[in-house]
Structures are given as structure tokens and as C-alpha cells.
Amino acid sequence: MSEEQNQQLQNKLHKDLIEAAKTAKSIGYNPTKFNQMIATEGGYKIAKKLIHSPTTSTGFEKLWELNRLDLSTEAVLLREEFRPLFTKEELEIAKTRLGEFGYEIEDISSALPPLKPSGREREFKGYEDHLKAKVIFEYLVNGLTHRELDERVLGLDMSKSKGLQSMNILHFLGMKADYKGIFKGEVLKEVISIFTEEGKDFDQSVRLLKLLDDDDLKNTINSDLEAEQVEEGHRLEGNIKYYYGKRYERDSDNRRLAIKKHGLNCYACGFNFEQVYGERGKDFIEVHHIKPLSTFKKAVEINPEKDLVPLCANCHRMVHRKKDKVLSIEELKEILLKQKE
């Protein structure tokens, strides 16, 4: 559901709540305070507030006495058309509250088609997580065909692959044809939110899609890189001067993917900057090339999972302290263990 559609649905809910209040007045209950609240904050916000209130409202009890709980906010928001506006938990609260007063609501089922996992994991395991995440997103939101996904996302010749690689990735997760374009026009965060609410069956998809939801981490990394460039004299009087090696080692996408894969704890000593420095250290860690950049004769493609590991500043410096003897992570770990003996 797009933002525009969401707003239209909120407007419809607002109008329906006002109509319910008018009907209530016509049968003997005038919800004056409720009308004032709606006029001030809007029907959607008031519905949210009432749902999260620990007790039933006076109006709810009055409508129960009049045998018209169908006019309650809980009953209105549980109408099929308004359910997308609320979380599964909120809908369950409304259903339970009505049920306790003898007003039954049909089962609240998922609006998404059931997943039908294929169990075939060869193709799924054959691609890096960030590529699988892009396949999922482009299929759900932009409605690309399997052949288009193979070509545009996986970089394959779709006339030869025939879309089988992307199809098998999606089918492993249980996403068949009824998921194609199901979230057309939606933003990534909304897709993740919906899948999260649906429960553990979507955990794998949520984990992958979160790899694309990295705005905060990207901003943090770019800020870190800029600070390092200034510190090392790579930015003088506003003119950016890049050194090939540094730029390559600190490519922000490679660093982001390495952090997403390996986490923010130092691979050698376990140090975590946020645990020690609080907010100042959030999302910070240095990233180390397992194979020294100085050994590269030409540009090569970096695999963030296999070629990069997170190291704290101390361990990173110790690894590189002697230019003719760069330590492996295992060698550094052995040094640390000996010092603890």
C-alpha cells in the first residue's frame, strides 16, 4: 500500500468513525468527548490510542449496554478494509476486547498469500545475501519477471538462464506467482514491517531485506570515512585527494556488507565500540583486508564475506605495524592468548 493509499484509507476510517458516532447519538448515546478527540487528532490516531488503552472506554461500555458494539471503534477498525492500517497485535486486542463482551469477530487471517517453500536450496545458497535481497525486493515491489531478475540483478544471460535462478531463490522462500508485485509502490521499510508482523515464516525474508535497509549505517560509514580522510591529510582546503589503495580498501559498500555479514565485534579481541563508548561508538568498527592491498597488481572484485573482517583500531594497527610482516588474524589471536597466560 502506497503512502497515498494509506492516507486515503485513514480518511475513510475517520469518516466512518464519525458516522458511527452519529448513529450512536440517534439511539441514545452522545459521545461528546469522542467527537472532540476525533476533531482534534483525527480518527486514526484516536483509534490507535483507544486500542492501546489498558481499559475499555466509557463509550464502549455504553454501546454494550445498548447492544450496539458494532458502533464501537474496535468493531469499526476490524472491518476488512481497515485492517491494513493496524498491526496484527492491535487487531487481536480489538477482537479480544469485543469477544469478552460477547461480540464475536471472524478470524483475523493474514492478507498475504500462504508461503509454499520448495525445499530446494542449491540456488538459494549459491548467491550472496545482498543479491538474494535484491531479487526479493524487485519481485515483490517492482514486479520483475524471473528472467528480468536473472539479467538485472544476478547478471546472467536471461536467454540462457531462462529465469530459473531467481525463480528457485524465490520458491525456496515460498514466494510463488501470487507474490509478484504484491507490494507495488511500497517502500522497503513498510515491506519489512509487514513481513515482521506476519511472524517467523517470514524471518528469512526479513533478514535479507534488512540488508537493503541500511541508510543509517551508510551515513555512519560515510561519516567515518570522511573523518579518516581528514585525519590522514587526504582532504586539504576543500579539495578531495584520493589515494587508490585507501579508496579501494575503504569502499563504503564493501565495508557496509562486511559489517552486515560479520557484525561489529573485533574478530581478534571481541572489542565492541558501542559497549565501551556508548552512542559515540555506535556502528563503528574498522575493516581489514585479509589479503594486503599492497599485494594486488590490479583492481580485483572484493567479496565482503571472504575478503574483509572487522577489527578494532588497536588490533588493526598491530596487524599492519610492520609493513614486511602483516599478521594473519590467527597469528594476532595467538599473541593475545599468550599475553593472557
Score class of each variant (00 low, 15 high):
Phe82Gly: 01
Val187Trp: 01
Asn219Gln: 13
Ile240Asp: 01
Glu61Ala: 11
Asn219Met: 07
Asn219Lys: 15
Ala299Tyr: 12
Val287Leu: 07
Lys45Gly: 05
Gly185Leu: 14
Glu90Asp: 15
Asp253Tyr: 02
Lys322Thr: 06
Leu85Ala: 08
Glu231Ile: 12
Ala299Lys: 15
Lys160Trp: 07
Leu66Ile: 09
Leu63Lys: 00
Gly143Phe: 09
Glu232Arg: 12
Leu327Thr: 08
Lys12His: 06
Ile38Pro: 00
Leu327Tyr: 13
Tyr44Met: 03
Ser252Lys: 02
Thr73Val: 15
Lys176Asn: 15
Arg79Lys: 13
Glu198Lys: 14
Asn303Tyr: 09
Phe202Gln: 07
Leu66Asn: 07
Leu173Val: 09
Pro31Cys: 02
Arg122Lys: 13
Gly270Ile: 02
Cys266Thr: 02
Glu228Ile: 06
Arg83Pro: 00
Lys62Ser: 09
Leu13Gln: 00
Ser57Asp: 03
Arg321Glu: 14
Glu228Val: 05
Ile259Lys: 05
Pro292Gln: 07
Val135Asn: 02
Lys125Ser: 07
Ala111Ser: 13
Gln204Tyr: 06
Tyr248Phe: 15
Leu257Cys: 00
Met158Thr: 04
Arg317Asn: 13
Glu334Val: 11
Ser205Tyr: 00
Glu74Gln: 08
Asp216Cys: 04
Leu63His: 00
Leu336Thr: 03
Leu217Glu: 14
Lys291Leu: 13
Gln229Ile: 03
Tyr244Ile: 02
Val191Ala: 08
Ile302Cys: 13
Asp213Pro: 10
His288Leu: 09
Lys210Ala: 02
Pro310Asp: 10
Tyr267Arg: 03
Lys261Met: 06
Val187Pro: 05
Lys261Thr: 13
Leu131Glu: 11
Leu173Lys: 07
Leu336His: 05
Gly233Ala: 10
Tyr103Asn: 04
Glu81Arg: 07
Pro31Lys: 01
Leu293Gln: 11
Asn35Gly: 01
Asn314Lys: 10
Gly278Pro: 03
Gly126Val: 04
Leu211Ser: 11
Lys125Ala: 08
Gly270Thr: 02
Leu208Tyr: 09
Asp324Leu: 05
Arg97Met: 02
Leu208Ile: 06
Asp150Glu: 13
Arg321Val: 10
His262Gln: 04
Leu225Trp: 01
Ile169Tyr: 06
Asp107Met: 02
Asn303Leu: 04
Ser193Val: 07
Asp157Val: 04
Glu81Gly: 03
Leu164Met: 12
Asn30Thr: 11
Val206Gln: 13
Val309Gly: 06
Leu115Asp: 02
Lys282Gln: 08
Met175Tyr: 14
His171Asp: 12
Asp178Asn: 15
Ala47Phe: 05
Glu190Thr: 15
Ser72Arg: 04
Lys200His: 14
Leu156Ile: 11
Glu190Met: 12
Phe202Gly: 08
